[in-house]
Design a protein around this nucleic acid. Sequence first.
DNA 1: GTCTATATACGGATAGAC
DNA 2: GTCTATCCGTATATAGAC
Lengths: 209, 209
Amino acid sequence: MPGTKTKAIDATTEEKIKEAARRIFTRKGYSATRTRDIAEEAGLNLALLNYYFRSKEKLFDIIMLETMQQFMQGVRVLLSAESSSLEEKISVFVSSYIDVLIKQPDLPLFIFSEIKANPKKLMAKMGLKEFLMNSQFLVQFREAVKTNKIAPVHPLQFIMNIVGLTVFPFIGSPILQNLGDLNTDEFNKLMEERKKLVPLWIKLMMMKT
Amino acid sequence: MPGTKTKAIDATTEEKIKEAARRIFTRKGYSATRTRDIAEEAGLNLALLNYYFRSKEKLFDIIMLETMQQFMQGVRVLLSAESSSLEEKISVFVSSYIDVLIKQPDLPLFIFSEIKANPKKLMAKMGLKEFLMNSQFLVQFREAVKTNKIAPVHPLQFIMNIVGLTVFPFIGSPILQNLGDLNTDEFNKLMEERKKLVPLWIKLMMMKT
DNA sequence: GTCTATATACGGATAGAC
DNA sequence: GTCTATCCGTATATAGAC
């Protein structure tokens, strides 16, 4: 039966639990998730969770760390990259992010909720601030302001705009889909459109007037 | 019978409970909130909650209904108003909304989270869709598109932009504040700036190119 | 490693004194 | 109306058989 199966081909029990946990935690958040839901989702016994991860919280910590690293990847793309222009960075960020979010639309609400619930525990692990400070992105932004190519605003305003225009639709999707009478496919079409629109809009917004 | 007795000068016990519940629910969400937290926040005994509201869920429903009505008020301002122009509507919406959110920054994350957790139960109560459909806002938007004043995009894209640029910073504030090394006052200053910037940006974004 | 059964803790709800 | 004490269901965690 299960113990005699090969580990090589299908997912190990530990991986099954992690995958199930990721789905449920992301969908419902830490507090609303019951370990029973995870066990059921994984098609496994409840006791296995404790055998592999000792506690709900430890399991969550592992999932959360991995999730945030994934979420951060887009940001790192946006911030680093020596060779590309500011505009190119924005395009790449928006486009790749929308791809991720179409596949995992629950991600933003989950991350922002959990960070709010536990800022100290989770913020440190991101190391986002250090990354931003010496980033090529910030250098290019300041240069563009100085040379009068874009309007002079706080860099954070600029970042809020890019991230907000990209991420917000997924946070508000239940309301927005209802508002526009859209099913998921139709909604995703609009998101695909935004891959081109958002970078264009950002460019227009930041024009010197 | 609860609620029928005194209309006193200072807050009644029932109001104290509701105020405490509003704060805690909004801060932590339904699942993570314990009735004991609410009782403590109100400086009252746990048993009073049940005396006045029968259950955690019934108390939550009352709070949630009131909160959504408040949240919707800004939207209604945006959508209705026969006399004002499209631009004016946007300015009023952004400005009044940012005022609300500076006072109650937890509101957006709370509302979006709870709607996601229980869309059927909560969406109907908003009645947002009906409101939008016959709104002056939508008429004016379509007119502006037809007369070539703004670029032709799905109205929902337009709404996402306005709401996203206004609301997103408050959803991401823990991360954003950390990113920019800002305390709450400094962050709020940026939000005050956005009262003027967002309407301007919207105007620029939507230009015909 | 995986299961069943059970211990333990926690949170929501209630009974009853005042 | 408000309190103390307590009940009871549910969720997490663990023991022990296989």
